[in-house]
């Protein structure tokens, strides 16, 4: 499956920041800030799937929510087709929402249990006031058959609880593509599905990308899935992107010490394969008012004295579009 990725950029994120105030202690007067997304920049081309991977609490979901404006960015820009959407409001915001959609992790929670499949899939059309009832019904039926829920009539007026997890996730995808968006944020869309169902949903999303030229930000903690889904991949650690590049390049040849440790810890479904063990100390903390130095400093096995003095390393191209944020990677 070779996809011709066009060179024009669809989404461009520049120095995006999201801080959450956290109150500590008994008195709420002292405000600290959790740097959930801290100075993140990347681009997604038309029809491209960018994977955003990392451990829980690294800020990948917050990044996704910022991109669809479920969260308000603290700082930075998000350009969609060259328009900065980070500060849109009112009618412009509503119009922008036709172009982006989100698919959620839990198909059991992302569909309103009291709404029929028809109502769920037609909801974006209804709130955007697109088409009349007959047109919407036709559109919903079309979307259902696109996502493989055939014949659509047999699904239209059923409720989510009558469907399996895989079918529900397909309904969620149908809802996401109903407005014909250019860009979809998919937040772990397959992590709650069973293995035999999962592949089907993954393949469906790839098909849609080709059919409708949809770009994805594919958020996942599972790097094996990312390998199959994504053209490029970015690895986040405590609010920062530490490594980014072509998927296969990042996975087979990780540069950043965190990325190397992370990839080495992924179990391989092959009893004859022996992983090389890369141990890193400690666990993931929380980026609450973090030090200006490298976020990975306290766990880093390759840190040098320079790292203690310098600010967090910038994400630099270390050759061939393979970016890493580390002073020690040349």
């Amino acid at each position: 499956m070779v996809v011709d990725i066009q060179t024009d950029t669809l989404v461009k994120v520049e120095r995006l920041k999201k801080l959450f105030p956290v109150s500590r202690g008994m008195f709420r007067a002292v405000k600290n800030y959790l740097h959930a997304v801290d100075d993140v920049s990347f681009e997604i081309k038309k029809g491209e799937i960018l994977g955003l991977a990392g451990e829980s609490g690294c800020g990948k979901t917050t990044t996704g929510k910022l991109l669809v404006r479920l969260e308000e960015p603290t700082e930075g820009h998000i350009f969609l087709n060259g328009v900065d959407i980070a500060t849109l409001e009112g009618r412009d915001l509503k119009k922008f929402r036709r172009n982006v959609q989100m698919i959620f992790q839990d198909p059991y929670e992302s569909l309103n249990p009291r709404m029929t499949i028809y109502d769920t899939v037609a909801e974006p059309l209804a709130v955007q006031r697109i088409g009349n009832i007959v047109e919407r019904q036709e559109r919903v039926a079309e979307m259902l058959s696109v996502v493989g829920l055939t014949p659509p009539e047999s699904f239209l007026f059923r409720f989510p609880h009558e469907l399996s997890g895989g079918q529900r996730q397909r309904v969620a995808i149908a809802r996401a593509i109903a407005l014909n968006p250019a860009f979809i944020v998919a937040d772990e869309p397959t992590s709650m599905l069973d293995v035999s169902i999962r592949t089907g949903v993954m393949k469906l999303m790839m098909e849609l990308r080709e059919k409708f030229e949809i770009s994805y930000l594919y958020i996942t903690h599972d790097l094996s899935v990312a390998r199959y889904m994504c053209d490029r991949i970015a690895i986040m650690y405590l609010g920062k992107i530490v490594e980014m590049g072509e998927t296969e390049e990042v996975i087979q040849n990780p540069l950043h010490p965190y990325a190397r440790a992370l990839l080495s810890a992924v179990p391989i479904p092959d009893p004859n394969y022996k992983r090389e063990a890369i141990e890193i100390k400690g666990g993931v903390g929380k980026p609450i008012d973090p030090n200006p130095q490298c976020r990975f400093l306290d766990r880093c096995p390759v840190a040098v004295p320079h790292c203690e003095e310098a600010p967090h390393p910038p994400l630099e191209d270390k050759g061939g579009g393979h970016y890493a944020a580390c002073y020690e990677v040349k």
């Binding site: 293995v195 035999s196 599972d222 899935v225 390998r227 199959y228 990839l263 992924v266 391989i268 479904p269």
Partner: peptide, 11 residues
């Protein structure tokens, strides 16, 4: 089928 539906990082 199960073995072949599971993605792997290696190989």
């Amino acid at each position: 089928a199960l073995m072949n539906s599971f993605p792997s990082l290696r190989g």
